[in-house]
Amino acid sequence: MFGNFDFDVIARALPYLFREGMVFTLTLTALSALGGIVVGTLIALLRLSGFRLLSRIAALYVDLIRSLPLVLVIFWFYFLVPYIGQWLTGAARPIKVGAFASSLITFIMFEAAYYSEIMRAGIQSISRGQPAAAQALGLTYGQTMRYVVLPQAFRNMLPVLLTQTIVLFQDTSLVYVVSIPDFLGAASIVGQRDGRLVEMYLFAALVYFVISCVASFGVRQLQARIAIVR
């Protein structure tokens, strides 16, 4: 069945696929994960704070984001961000936001909702005696979180956070809806140009599979190494 396949097309496209496509995909994944974890931690802290209004707003945000398909959010955001920017800055015209910036903001906002739930579970897994002991030593709420609760929560949750990041790595391929040449987008451009879509999609699937598998294996190794002994 592979008789009609032309795998040569892949070899010729490799530099473009990896130097442009994969670099974009990995950059978007790394920055989205970083931003998502920071914003997600803040949302988790708001949700667990004693202020009912703040925690309700945070909960609403998480529920809202989690009930929307990611593709739709990417799509809408790409068209809306220029107008939101215009509204915020009071500019005369819609602000020009590059495809990269727009998709990065989308992914950070979207992933923050998922990361915040992971962090919330992580923070709640720390026994109440820990913050009590920290406060008894005179640490403020902020110091208690920063030096005692969050480091432990992060360590407990790191495997889950990384697994979520692997999902994010796959999800970044959805930026194709706004015609961004990420890895999958690049593969599809080459495939359409050369009329070799099947080969290119097969190759893209293989690459995503290998990277995700290796990463999952790495997470499992890490999990065994960093577990805090109690």
Binding site: G129, A132, A136, L137, T140, V148, P151, I228, R230
Partner: peptide, 20 residues
Amino acid sequence: LPKLRARVGMVFQHFELFPH
């Protein structure tokens, strides 16, 4: 309160050392 707590030592039933 944090300042006042810093001046009073407290020891707990379950030690509550920071495991990390």
